[in-house]
Design a protein around this nucleic acid. Structure first.
Length: 144
DNA sequence: GCCAACGTTGGC
DNA sequence: GCCAACGTTGGC
């Protein structure tokens, strides 16, 4: 099975990439939206997950990896809510802002753009790679 | 601070 | 089963 790609959101004021790196990973719990829940269930060990800072930062800041597939969310009363374990892979050299993503025609279909409230979403491999590229190159040279 | 989008709840 | 009211998320 080919590796899949995802994007998860977190408010940095609540839980930031810095917190995540400091802890060397985390249980991604607290998701209480059904669409997001179904996405968590689809995650497989080894899948790569972009880490997005919502609200105050509005940028993709790092890459993480699924370390444990879905299991009942320990913070939920209802066992249908699930969590996964994520570990950091590396930060992006340069965060990729939502504005930059919206300016990129090849990223116009991203759920991040089209459905801003979804907190766990699948992304295509090409989209994942595009964002990585934007995160590695200076803004002046990133249009190609 | 405002508001649009979306989900949930509850009255009917 | 419909829909109005309300709460939450998150961009602007």
């Amino acid at each position: 099975m080919a590796r899949r790609y995802w994007l998860v959101k977190s408010e940095p004021g609540a839980y930031s990439w810095g917190d995540f790196v400091e802890e060397a990973g985390t249980c991604w719990d607290g998701v209480r939206n059904n669409a997001a829940r179904l996405n968590l269930i689809e995650m497989r060990k080894g899948d790569l997950v972009l880490f997005y800072h919502s609200v105050s930062d509005k940028a993709v800041v790092g890459i993480s990896r699924v370390a444990r597939e879905s299991y009942p969310d320990p913070t939920a009363d209802d066992p249908r809510w699930v969590a996964v374990d994520l570990v950091p892979v590396r930060p992006l050299r340069k965060p990729v802002s939502l504005a930059r993503i919206k300016a990129e025609p090849r990223l116009a279909e991203l759920a991040l753009v089209r459905q801003s409230r979804l907190s766990v979403m699948p992304i295509r491999r090409a989209e994942f790679e595009r964002i990585l590229r934007l995160g590695e190159t200076p803004a002046s040279a990133s249009g190609r």
